[in-house]
Write a protein that binds this DNA or RNA. Structure first.
Lengths: 161, 161
DNA sequence: TTTAATGCAAAGTTTTTGCAGAGAG
DNA sequence: CTCTCTGCAAAAACTTTGCATTAAA
């Protein structure tokens, strides 16, 4: 993790930005919550534990900066909030998401499933693809499993528990 | 278009909602701007021409209702605003978008390019796909053409104009 | 030292809500 | 006639901005 922070520090310096303690604390929170999809407010509350004097505005400014540097991607899942998602180091494109309509869980797909589709888009629509946002809405495996169990229960055939 | 409105009216009635003049005016605006990606405010201003007494809150409430009925889809392109996009009649899934990073144009892809990808997601991630959001960010054909023209101009080989 | 970055508070946007009155079925 | 729907205005939620102060390189 320290290595990752060093590399982000270099990226900042390359664009003549500084790695201030506030920025470092923010990056650490993002690294520690790599699987989550934190809103600015979420990040703010978590950073406050490390650096209680930080202001919400600084968090917003830092997240904007990290977005500009493509360290994070900003995404919106339809609730009224922007969320910030760490980009895998060296990834050319933003990863994909699975949003469960039942439990609200958001899972990530790191694999790029869109290479062929992007070729089609470039050829057929003459559109030069630079990045993408792909989110699936549906039912996650956890909720499917729960449903299956419930239907077994209803038949009186529940497994031992 | 009248047929389309009738069918939406039936959909509303099926869920015991009424097609009030305000709602009808809103639907008409959406039909007349099928290619656009209007924000609530955009819709409000356009509806005001037809029904000047309408309130912004009613527009929000109507758009929410139409989203619930899957007549429109709500989408967010990363500016801070939700936009509302008419769903093609009978379409199982939301269509895709091409957002030009240069001119800001938003084009639509009605074809479903994700069938194979969704099969992979269902098999490999055990995720039951109900819908999706897919947006490509890049350079549209219009801007590519402009760039090409400019580079010809720079060589002094501009076409007659 | 010098310029960029911060914290605070105020302002800006977008969206939602409460409520009394209006109107659709 | 009843119960939903509307308009208005106020509130809420999220994000950005201005400015005096602080601190990084």
């Amino acid at each position: 993790m320290e290595g990752r922070i060093d590399r982000i520090k270099k990226q900042l310096h390359a664009s003549s930005y500084k790695l201030t303690p506030q920025r470092e604390a923010t990056v650490r929170v993002l690294l520690e919550h790599e699987q989550d999809h934190l809103s600015a407010e979420d990040v703010y509350l978590l950073v406050k534990d490390k650096a209680p004097e930080i202001g919400l505005a600084t968090v917003y400014r830092t997240l904007e900066l990290l977005t500009e540097l493509k360290v994070v991607d900003k995404i919106n899942f339809g609730d009224g909030v922007s969320r910030y998602d760490l980009r895998k180091e060296g990834a050319a494109h933003f990863h994909h998401h699975l949003v469960c309509m039942e439990c609200g869980a958001v899972d990530e797909i790191q694999e790029d499933l869109l290479e062929e589709v992007e070729t089609v888009v470039e050829k057929r629509w003459n559109f030069l693809v630079k990045d993408h946002r792909l989110t699936f809405h549906g039912i996650c495996w956890r909720c499917s499993d729960n449903r299956a169990e419930e239907s077994i229960d209803h038949k009186g055939n529940s497994k031992d528990s």
